[in-house]
Amino acid sequence: MDAVLPHSASSRPQGEAPAAYAAEARDIVVEFHGHKAVNNVSLGVAKGEVCAIIGPSGSGKSTLLRTFNHLQEPTSGQILIDGVFSVRSGKPTAAELMALRRKVGMCFQSFNLFPHLTAAENIMLAQVKALGRSKDAARDRALQLLDRVGLASKADVKPSKCSGGQQQRIAIARALALDPEIMLFDEPTSALDPELGAEVLAVMRELARTGMTMLVVTHEMHFAEDVADHLVFMADGVIVEQGNPSSVLRNPQADRTRKFLKAVTDR
């Protein structure tokens, strides 16, 4: 495996254990019709770390996030999970993608719950079809996860009968059901009014406390400051600034970051 690593572990300082990231993007480029939506970005997330990505719309932050589970195929660059390439080379095989996505869970801005299935069935489907769990075991796990996100009573209810905040919490439970090592959140509260967003953020906070590695694209500056360990500001397809959330938010170094934060706080 090491032979295919462009930066092998030996390039690290001698004697230290290789500080492999739980999830790492290396030199990611995503091109749409000649336009570089993500322009040579590298980003690592340590195990148990919560990394928030902020930036204006069109900055490439969601596109970058989606390369972590290859929902967006990068034009070039690699994704590593636990220091291991998720895709050997070239076009990923179906098996590689499935293995990657079992390790990397994802929640979407628009929830994308399956409308024809109940909350419990939504959470059971991939357990049964992708992990091969029995229906009984999958249902037990679904009920346990629904309880964890505070929605045990909604097990047999269709998503359309749930509020947006409840739907997103079901979506989080659905992703957790595959026991992922990393969770991706693509603007999980952007489609929700503040009150409903708060219940989703509470679940995410709890998840962070349990040590889940999380990569969160968000507009919630408070969440970014309180919960995230690391903050990344992206604009025009590149990382403009990153570091400790409080220092980036309170003492931004780059003009572009200042301009963005001013626009956000002035609203």
């Binding site: 929902l71 996505r101 628009s110 994308n112 489907l125 992708a130 992703a175």
Partner: peptide, 19 residues
């Protein structure tokens, strides 16, 4: 988004279509 969610949950193409 339905297709994407199915992919993100590592469902196979067949399962994502039928389920």
């Amino acid at each position: 988004g339905q297709q994407e969610a199915a992919q993100a949950l590592s469902l196979s193409r067949i399962s994502s279509f039928t389920n």
